[in-house]
């Protein structure tokens, strides 16, 4: 029995040590590349000071033409939104942006209705920060949000067992790390400004009833973002891009709000109910730039 246990221990220990090195190598390759937004922040944004950054989920990723906004306003900014995420992830991205030695004058936060109303939880794409699992703010984020889950805390345990996260998210992390090794400049569905565009399609909006939604801002992570912006002297602007047949009614608050939800009545500007297409993005950016011109 002892001989067997020794054999198992030997095979598994050697296997785990090798797995550890492969994982660290893989995370290193990801950190070196630009595949996901967190490494894009560190490796592509060369300016230490930018005028604005955009945070949010897919509506932010596809809702503003950053290059056009720069041209129209004379400002310089980047879109750091990550699709399928919530406000906790936006907070993490802001922390990460600041921790990598960058500063910004403004944060354009694009929250979705659900991210403001639903309880804070892990989102589908939180693994995209795993290559920074040794950073304290990333560890805190994973520990805090995984504390309430019944599943194995894969994300937070990756700090100690790097192969855990890499193995669980192998399609999302291990395979891209191989891509990053050979093509460090490749991005995962975003351009050099961090934007992604939805093409024109045949969205007709049929069956979508028009509605008005009252938006409250009582959200734990929105408060955290506000507080961090205050501490760093950053201006926070909350931007709601157009939504098909929907108008957000903004409750009383102290925030700078740009509400374009009811700006487009035609379905031709939409890719689906909540995402605008390339043409809609261009038009929405023009409207947003007006706000900037008036305010500043």
């Amino acid at each position: 029995m002892k001989k067997f246990l020794y054999y198992i221990l030997k095979v598994f220990l050697v296997g785990l040590i090798l797995a550890y090195f492969i994982s660290e190598l893989s995370f290193w390759a990801l950190r070196r590349g630009n595949f996901y937004k967190p490494t894009f922040v560190e490796n592509t944004i060369k300016e230490k000071e930018v005028d604005y950054i955009i945070l949010g989920a897919s509506t932010a990723l596809t809702g503003i033409d950053t290059e056009l906004l720069d041209t129209l306003t004379g400002l310089k900014g980047y879109n750091l939104a990550i699709d399928d995420t919530g406000l906790p992830n936006s907070y993490l991205m802001l922390q990460h942006f600041l921790a990598t030695g960058h500063t910004t004058q403004k944060v354009i936060l694009v929250p979705t209705e659900s991210s403001l109303t639903q309880p804070s939880s892990l989102s589908d794409n939180d693994y995209r920060f795993l290559m920074y699992n040794k950073k304290r703010y990333v560890q805190n984020y994973y520990q805090e949000l995984e504390a309430s889950t019944e599943n194995i805390p894969v994300l937070s345990q990756t700090t100690y067992f790097p192969f855990l996260g890499l193995s669980y998210f192998n399609v999302e992390l291990f395979f891209p790390s191989l891509v990053s090794l050979f093509q460090p400049n490749k991005h995962n569905r975003f351009n050099n400004k961090g934007d992604y565009s939805y093409p024109k399609n045949n969205f007709k909006g049929e069956g979508e009833k028009s509605k008005k939604v009252v938006i409250d801002f009582d959200n734990e992570y929105l408060k955290k973002i506000e507080n961090l912006c205050d501490r760093m002297g950053v201006e926070l602007i909350v931007y709601f891009p157009p939504i098909y047949n929907t108008e957000f009614l903004i409750s009383e608050n102290q925030l700078n709000i740009v509400n374009l939800t009811a700006s487009f009545s035609s379905s031709k500007f939409f890719y689906d109910k909540i995402h605008i297409n390339t043409e809609g993005k261009r038009k929405a950016t023009l409207l947003l730039s007006e706000y900037f011109k008036i305010k500043y």
């Binding site: 095979v11 598994f12 050697v14 296997g15 090798l18 797995a19 492969i22 192969f163 890499l166 193995s167 669980y168 192998n170 291990f174």
Partner: peptide, 13 residues
């Protein structure tokens, strides 16, 4: 060990 590593990094979990 090689198969163990393949399971870990190429498997579906």
């Amino acid at each position: 060990i090689a198969i163990f590593l393949m399971i870990l990094f190429l498997g579906v979990f």
